[in-house]
Design a protein around this nucleic acid. Structure first.
Lengths: 340, 340
DNA sequence: CAAATCTGGCAAAACGGTTAGGCGCCGCTC
DNA sequence: GAGCGGCGCCTAACCGTTTTGCCAGATTTG
């Protein structure tokens, strides 16, 4: 790998001049400029980012820490983040905390040594790890929010999303509505459950205790919870499911139990996953503008990295859109079949 | 951020000693060792990777360049690669070439300036870009293979996979078998088509010209090709589809055309996507051991990075496994319905 | 015409680590 | 007790950039 010194020697100038030409940071006479540029392309020179990082204190690296890379939802996040980071001229380092706070801590440490300029993180725990607190890297939380009094955040209005979906089920006449939501220490878990309960309460409908369940945001977890809930008498006539992957698991459970959707049970979810459009029946759900959210998150991050790192935290909340499929039907039919 | 000098001052030793303690690269007396370690944790010191990179010439960075991040298949690749890279102690930089050779070139240049220690790449073009040739970074090609006489590669036996699937359809009695495969300048496109044709030829079955189609590895592309192919008289009784996302698109087209699978048409594919298990009918397909393949690719890459960069290229080919679903039926039923 | 100003380019000092080489000091040998 | 290794630590050079002075020459100014 040729260095700036090789280029300087080849062009018969100093390294300062080469640097000035390459970065356009100072005026250089046309004569020297062309000499330098031809030496650059002759040697196929590229400045070393490591050296630049050392000198400038900026690495042009942004880290993305997701909670579960195997979840297609986060696949979309990675995809959008890569595009946004590239557009801003940053390279994206992807890490997977796998829903484990301890792994998240290790990763945040590593990010510090990598001297990333910023971090986009889907936090895993209920609280922000103290050592991350100390790490003075601009941070934007994505999707989930844990208060730390410093980071920006970009999230969806979980309560609104869930109550919107629940309202829809209530409108269809359902009263025995079950729910499978995510871990309650996460805002995406707690908030969606609250939204659902809130909508029920607003109509004076009391949820049946055994029908309100929560588990991990995973296909298999949702499958087994659904299977258990639906396999006993007095099963709900409608089910609110908190996420796209979970809905997939629930659908599978429904099929495996020999139930038909929406005839025997209505299913609706907040959030979705790519490719779910091919699934029949088409899922009634909310769609979250992941790409827009990621773009906004990167905008906030870049702003904080390049402008004011000390600005007071900003919290952007997006609103979901409801998409009607055909996975929900009127309550009457289902009630008959589900009666104990 | 505290530097090694701060630690040295706090512990009353030289930077060399701090370095020796932190890296365990030389013997240091217990007394000083503890002094250094407590200074390290008191200051919360982490060595700067940029400085280490500069000095050691290794960045502990591995780049992954995928052809289409939006494709869930590559989502799995990213997931597996992150895990493998982390296990080897590397951070993963993810880039998306978006099937554009020009973008791939830009990315490879960027990787050079990042001084990544190695690259895992899903090549986009029919040939290896010359400037990438020049870039002396250890490279492993993943999935697709373009000869460059230098990189290792890890791929699946596309021909075997496709002919296995086609054989299955032939065994069911199908003769009018259509195919939707990927771009023919890619080994994953060409190879799978060849495998399919080979299997047909071996049974003396001539494919109907209009039924052999290829397009991009995308859901919407497959949807429109399938829709067009299936909407005219004399449609095939069975369809071989080259990839999981494409199968999703084909399934959607089948449903939208009011056809039933497998009653009206049998569908089988090579490769799959996560979550397809929830789809009904269950797709008959091959499964590719993506995680194993990625692990092997990283093993090769690490080997080349840490041992012999000049070793002659190794090409590892994996074999797919066939998974029987219920998306295929005997030919008789379908033939009746599809007759012109 | 001397002095002041400007201009384009260079030398050298960082940035934060690693590491080769050197140098006391201790204990051993004869 | 002088000579001698070896141990334990330090000094300093170096990795490839950026950037701050600074300098020589050209140009303008009084």
């Amino acid at each position: 790998m040729p260095t700036i010194r090789d280029v300087a020697r080849a062009a018969g100038v100093s390294t300062a001049t080469v640097s000035a030409v390459v970065n356009g940071s100072a005026y250089v006479s046309p004569r020297l400029r062309t000499r330098v540029l031809s030496a650059v392309s002759a040697l196929n020179y590229t400045p070393s980012l490591a050296a630049q990082t050392l000198k400038r204190g900026r690495s042009q690296l942004v880290a993305l820490v997701v909670a579960d890379l195997a979840n297609p939802f986060f696949g979309r996040v990675v995809c959008a983040a890569e595009a946004a980071a590239a557009a801003w001229g940053y390279a994206l380092v992807v890490c997977n905390s796998d829903e484990k706070p301890e792994k998240e801590r290790r990763i945040l440490g590593r990010i510090r040594t990598l001297s990333c300029d910023g971090v986009l993180v889907v936090p895993v725990g209920a609280a922000w790890p103290p050592e991350a607190e100390a790490m003075a890297v601009p941070t934007v939380q994505f999707g989930r929010v844990v208060e730390d009094g410093r980071s920006d955040s970009v999230s969806i209005d979980n309560v609104a999303a869930a109550s919107q979906v629940t309202d829809y089920l209530l409108d269809l006449g359902h009263r025995r509505i079950g729910s499978i939501t995510g871990p309650l220490h996460l805002t995406t878990g707690r908030g969606r459950l609250d939204g659902m309960l809130q909508a029920m309460r607003a109509r004076g409908v009391a949820p049946c205790p055994g029908h309100v369940r929560s588990g991990e945001f995973r296909e298999d977890a949702a499958y087994s919870v659904a299977r258990e809930m639906l396999d006993r008498p007095g099963r709900p006539t409608a089910l609110y499911v908190a996420s796209g992957v979970m809905a997939l698991g629930v659908m599978r459970a429904v099929t495996d139990l020999g139930l038909r959707c929406p005839d025997d049970i209505s299913i609706a979810s907040t959030d979705t996953i790519p490719g779910i459009g091919g699934l029949r029946p088409r899922l009634t759900r909310t769609e979250h503008p992941v790409a827009d959210m990621v773009n906004e998150a990167l905008r906030l991050l870049v702003d904080r990295m390049t402008r004011d790192a000390q600005a007071s935290p900003r919290h952007v909340v997006f609103r979901p859109a409801m998409i009607l499929g055909d996975s929900c039907g009127p309550a009457e039919r289902a009630v008959a079949g589900a009666a104990p």
